[in-house]
Amino acid sequence: MQNIIAFFIRNRNFFFFLALLSLSLVFTFQSHSYHRSKFINSANWLTGGVYESVNNISSYFDLKEQNQKLVEENLRLRNLILNQGENTVDSLIKDSTNNLLNYRIKSATVIKNSYNKTKNYILINKGKKDGIKQDLGVITTNGIVGIIDNTSSGHSTVQSVLNSLSEINAQLKNTSHFGTLEWDTKKRNIVQLTDIPDLANPQVGDTIITGGMSTIFPKNIPIGTIMDFKFDDSENYYIINVKLFNDMTSLEHVYIIENMNTDEIKQLENLTNEQ
């Protein structure tokens, strides 16, 4: 017994090293699986606070460009209001007149953007106290950005579409064949749409939009256009390279979409699964 204790004391540095290494490996592998990176994320008061105060300064530098983007969006929305009746299909809020909101939209500002890793997360300045929850969709005027991952009281992290873990339901606008949107970590403006069946017949330049299969994003949110595609003979599926509408390297104002019917749909699905 004494020998064992002496052995541990002699090699205490090695065991301390092993303990620290395994602790960091636990953190690493937790972050490799979806929605498990509870401990290590930048949505806490310390990192959120630091990034927020730095962003207060740096956001002045592209104020002009961001204002231009907002003006363009206002222009588009004004057009939509003035021409209402002809173009109601495009609007996100379908039943805004009769008090039955399907989607609630909140705005937020990006305070830390990341696009050079294989698993990219974006930090935004809204959190639990603003009603942000896990699994809400995040978009900009141009298209989708990602899905809310972790929230603290004042900040949230967004799992970007440029994240090898992200899987978003998407479809071809023309033919409504749907598949899964993934990222092969190669280029920061190109994502991959997989599992499109062989009957779909995609064309270069076709628009890709979100599908209505999940409760995270509403249908018809733009994603990008088809750049090229190849047919996977062994799987009988198309793999399509999609060029994103959004410039993921310059994000400032984003919108968070909350589907008001999520609970109802989840309950219904559970009910069906039980039967």
Binding site: S24, F27, F29, Q30
Partner: peptide, 17 residues
Amino acid sequence: VDLFSDTGGVNAAASVC
């Protein structure tokens, strides 16, 4: 560094090694 850059524990593991 991991905390700030949302990378799980990769920087911690490499540093300890």
